[in-house]
């Protein structure tokens, strides 16, 4: 167990942090009944994925991937591909949260609550009657 924690802190602190963030977001998504907080949980999960991706591209002691004084040696720069992927991810997560929030507004208009359990109960009542 001590070994496990030591490797985690010494070599994998970024990945471990991203996994814990992912877990926090997932538990928010499952356990919280408020729809807005569920969307927040989804956003935290997105952030964890970005952290993991950027951590995969980083190399110690290298420059950011912008050409500096004419050097085009691949061993001088960090990996540019995860950065582009994270950019895509950010755009998609912005769009998804906007659509989810507008759906939440519509649900609130109809049921006057943000509690998902209450919304499901109301909906079942409407279905049954």
């Amino acid at each position: 167990m001590i070994d496990f924690l030591q490797t985690l802190i010494e070599y994998h602190i970024e990945e471990a942090a991203s996994m814990i963030l992912f877990g926090i977001g997932f538990s928010l998504l499952l356990l919280n009944r408020n729809l807005i907080k569920k969307i927040m949980g989804l956003n935290i999960m997105d952030t964890a994925v970005y952290l993991f991706l950027t951590a995969k591209g980083y190399v110690y002691g290298r420059m950011v991937p912008i050409m500096n004084s004419g050097i085009t040696d691949p061993n001088a720069y960090t990996n540019p591909i995860p950065d582009g992927l994270v950019l895509t991810g950010i755009v998609v997560s912005v769009s998804v949260s906007a659509i989810l929030l507008s759906l939440t507004i519509r649900l609130y208009d109809r049921y006057h609550t943000l509690d998902l359990d209450k919304i499901i109960t109301e909906w079942r009542k409407e279905e049954d009657n």
């Binding site: 996994m19 992912f22 995969k56 190399v59 110690y60 991937p65 085009t72 040696d73 990996n79």
Partner: peptide, 30 residues
């Protein structure tokens, strides 16, 4: 997930599998 993280290649090493010929090509010819 945390258990699996410890088997990943070490953080920030130049010979990680993510730093392959694709990114090298982008940097060399970009």
């Amino acid at each position: 997930l945390l258990w699996m993280v410890q088997f990943l290649p070490k953080f920030g090493q130049p010979d990680n599998p993510a730093n392959n010929e694709v990114s090298a090509r982008y940097i060399e010819k970009g």
